[in-house]
Design a protein around this nucleic acid. Structure first.
Length: 796
DNA sequence: CCCCCCCC
């Protein structure tokens, strides 16, 4: 409609000029008028020159200069942005080092329409196409070429140190930094592989570390930086010695002039930046620091945040930007990377927004150097979307409704905190993985989205003292029972695959005799050493003979839940987090017969209710094929940042925390003596040592905690069915209570006074997260309910 | 020329 009132532009007219056609008149639109940097020394109007972006409606061309005679049109505000002009005379000149760039000098124009709107949607005409170049006739002296100004020696420096041409008739272009080269300054967003002579002025927004790689074809080093200007962003990459060189050169937050580099395609799923190409740094690449006086590049990366739930619909292995609240931070974990054949480090974060939460995995240096805290709002640019345990499995039937389901599921979860967390539970069967160019920011500008997240943050963490109750795995709800694990064993044997499970339970047996072994002392290797018998050991993995060794865990444990038991091995960090001491200390305690440290450690380890991460696979061992469930890792909710904090009364009220639950661990910490029934299914299978008493229908046993919270001599075995073999010394506090109406449950403190101050229980949930897996329908945890009930009764 | 595996 509007176009009817616009003058017709000469479509294709620009190309005619570029091809060298003379005596050709056209109607064009001025998209932009920009003053070419003037020389301060000669501040007269005749020295001013204007660069135009001209459009013929179909294309626009940005390398146009308004002839000196025409500049009054601009000065008098007749020729301006969006003006429509008739171009009467044009000179075409070549520029660029190789003379392969074209500049149109608009010698004579008539302004047809001073004020107008932008017509059409023209696309940029490339200024480097060889086909276009062939027809160009050099109809003006070389002296007028941009490149000549700086290359021919005819240019000279003025008193300001700027370059200028000394020929009055030449096009007076002052390159900002001609000492670098004559490449044309351009915006990042116009870079492409066909544009050869360019220079960008860009700020470094991120810088990876130099990563060593090796694959089938080659090995080497690589690093990358992110570059931004006001127009866009691009990833630059350098290899091998160039990686070393430019890693040293480029610093984050600084602005550089960069030229003589290649613009090449790169796989988009490894590129956190939106540019469809990336810059390949070459040996002749010039990178010059932009002095602060010229550093007007304040552009920053642009986030294109998507809600976490949106990740469900994204293609796997693509990158996305997410802003969220950090709800948990796991410790760094070391794992053996089969492909790299070395030990590597990862760290999982859980991040959460209004709808969902998802795991973000950091690798290597980014994992190790991560030092932010939970509750922070994190902005992530360009993290890779990964399937997690196979998306199909997790996606099955849940997708977006999962959040609601969790609301329902969480009815029985007693903690307000838990409800919040589960409502935003991990449900999409995917994770985010940081790649080399992923940017993580915490100082985000205060946008609407950030404000919303801030609200969320406060609702999740109402008190600054409240620590997080979840870890990455705790809110993975696919916890199975041990009988389910056992049921998969034939399948595992048959297909020799590896299966992963989460089990809620505790260790009933910790094998003490072979809990530690002498491991290889080579960094991060823990391979069991062969004793050569001559004071030396040999590591078959590292192939190193050594005198030294490191103690390492190989804990054989029996994990039980209400459905059965499972023998597992725990190595390394899994064992260490279970026992909470290093293998060295373990060895010391074990050797030390004067204290009971060792026994306490074992008991404490067994007493913890936790979520175990189990991998089950077939391994060949002593020529036999066994189904081995190993690599068991502790997956208990723990908070790295503010463990064990206790919220005060005020915050407690704000939490509206449900008062109807209590954890065993709390009891353990508060009660010196308790009497509880330790039977289940009306069949006493409990055992007790001489300090406990269980007698027939009395069905209770007593045990004590020591003053330091480790309970000594409390060897009540509380397993409920006969097929669970238990070891008395590892009795956990998870007790199955009999539900008999006439049974008296009594809890007493050490003076045999019945514990009654129910209010004190409200404080427990936070510093006590280890044991708070209370699921009503799960008999393994019924003890807590029962305890609560009885305490509640006795308390009131 | 990396490139994504690893981890769950």
């Amino acid at each position: 409609m509007m176009n009817e009132h616009f003058p017709m532009l000469t479509m294709g007219g620009l190309n005619e000029y570029i091809k060298g056609r003379k005596g050709y008149s056209s109607i064009l639109q001025v998209l932009d008028v920009r003053l070419i940097k003037a020389k301060e020394a000669e501040n007269t109007s005749s020295d001013k020159r204007y660069r135009l972006i001209l459009s013929d409606g179909r294309n626009f061309f940005s390398s146009c200069v308004l002839g000196a005679d025409m500049i009054d049109l601009v000065k008098n505000d007749i020729l301006k942005n969006n003006s429509v002009i008739r171009v009467n005379q044009v000179d075409v000149c070549n520029a660029g080092v190789k003379g392969d760039r074209v500049i149109l000098i608009i010698r004579d124009v008539t302004v047809v329409l001073s004020d107008c709107e932008k017509i059409g949607d023209p696309v940029q005409l490339d200024n480097h196409d060889s086909i276009q170049r062939t027809a160009i006739s050099l109809n003006i002296p070389k002296i007028q070429c941009f490149s000549t100004v700086s290359k021919s020696g005819l240019a000279k420096k003025n008193s300001n140190g700027e370059w200028q041409a000394d020929d009055k008739n030449s096009i007076e272009v002052v390159l900002e930094k001609p000492k670098i080269n004559a490449n044309e300054m351009c915006n990042i967003n116009v870079l492409d592989p066909f544009r050869t002579e360019w220079m960008i002025k860009a700020r470094v927004v991120n810088k990876s570390y130099i990563r060593e790689y090796s694959n089938m074809n080659r090995s080497g080093k690589v690093f990358n930086v992110g570059l931004v200007d006001s127009s866009g962003e691009i990833r630059a990459v350098g290899f091998d010695h160039l990686a070393e060189r430019f890693y040293a050169t480029l610093e984050i937050e600084k602005t550089y002039y960069i030229s003589n580099a290649s613009v090449v395609p790169g796989k988009q799923n490894f590129n956190s930046f939106t540019h469809m190409y990336q810059i390949l740094l070459r040996s002749d690449t010039t990178i010059d620091l932009c002095g602060r006086e010229n550093d007007e590049v304040h552009a920053d990366i642009v986030f294109n945040f998507i809600p976490i739930k949106e990740i469900t619909h994204r293609t796997c292995n693509t990158v996305c930007d997410v802003v969220a609240v950090i709800s948990s931070i796991d410790a760094c974990k070391t794992y053996y990377n089969k492909y790299k054949r070395k030990y590597c480090v990862k760290r999982d974060l859980m991040i959460i927004d209004e709808d969902a939460s998802i795991m973000l995995t950091l690798w290597e240096h980014q994992a190790e150097s991560f030092d932010n805290t939970i509750r922070s709002i994190i902005g992530i640019k360009g993290a890779k979307i990964c399937d997690f345990h196979g998306i199909s499995k997790m996606m099955k039937g849940i997708k977006d409704i999962a959040a609601d389901e969790f609301c329902n599921r969480s009815d029985y979860l007693r903690s307000f905190m838990k409800i919040i967390v589960l409502k935003n539970a991990y449900f999409i069967g995917r994770s985010l993985s940081a790649i080399d160019s992923t940017i993580i920011r915490f100082d985000l500008p205060c946008t609407d989205r950030i404000i919303k997240l801030e609200t969320l943050r406060k609702s999740i963490f109402p008190s600054s003292n409240v620590s997080c109750l979840t870890t990455t795995s705790q809110i993975d709800w696919s916890i199975v029972t041990i009988d389910q694990v056992i049921a998969t064993e034939p399948d595992t044997m048959k297909h020799k695959n590896t299966q992963y499970f989460y089990i809620k339970g505790y260790c009933s047996v910790i094998e003490q005799d072979h809990a530690i072994y002498m491991g290889c002392s080579v960094d991060k290797c823990r391979k069991k050493l062969d004793d050569l018998g001559n004071g030396f050991f040999f590591c078959r993995k590292c192939r190193v003979r050594q005198e030294a060794f490191k103690w390492a865990y190989s804990l054989s444990c029996c994990i039980v839940d209400h459905t059965g038991e499972l023998n597992v091995c725990m190595f390394g960090s899994a064992a260490e987090s279970l026992l909470e001491i290093s293998p060295d200390v373990f060895h010391q305690y074990k050797e030390d017969s004067k204290t009971t440290n060792f026994e306490e450690i074992i008991m404490r380890g067994a007493a913890k209710n936790q979520i175990f991460n189990i991998s089950s696979k077939v391994v060949e061992y002593h020529m036999e094929i066994l189904d081995e469930s190993q690599k068991c890792e502790k997956r208990s909710p723990s908070c790295l940042n503010s463990p064990g904090e206790i919220i005060d009364e005020k915050d407690n009220n704000n939490l509206e925390i449900s008062h109807n639950w209590i954890s065993v661990k709390y009891c353990r910490s508060k009660l010196k003596k308790m009497r509880i029934c330790s039977n289940f299914d009306n069949e006493v299978s409990s055992e007790a040592d001489e300090e406990s008493s269980i007698s027939g229908d009395e069905e209770y046993s007593a045990f004590e905690t020591s003053s330091n919270d480790a309970f000594q001599g409390s060897s009540v075995s509380t397993q409920t069915s006969a097929d669970v073999s238990t070891v008395a010394t590892q009795t956990p506090w998870t007790i199955y209570l009999e539900q008999k109406s006439n049974t008296n449950y009594v809890a007493m403190d050490d003076s045999d006074k019945i514990l009654s101050n129910i209010d004190t229980f409200h404080k427990l949930y936070n510093n006590d997260s280890l044991d708070n897996h209370i699921v009503e329908s799960d008999p393994a945890y019924i003890c807590d309910d029962q305890l609560y009930e009885f305490l509640n009764k006795t308390g009131k």
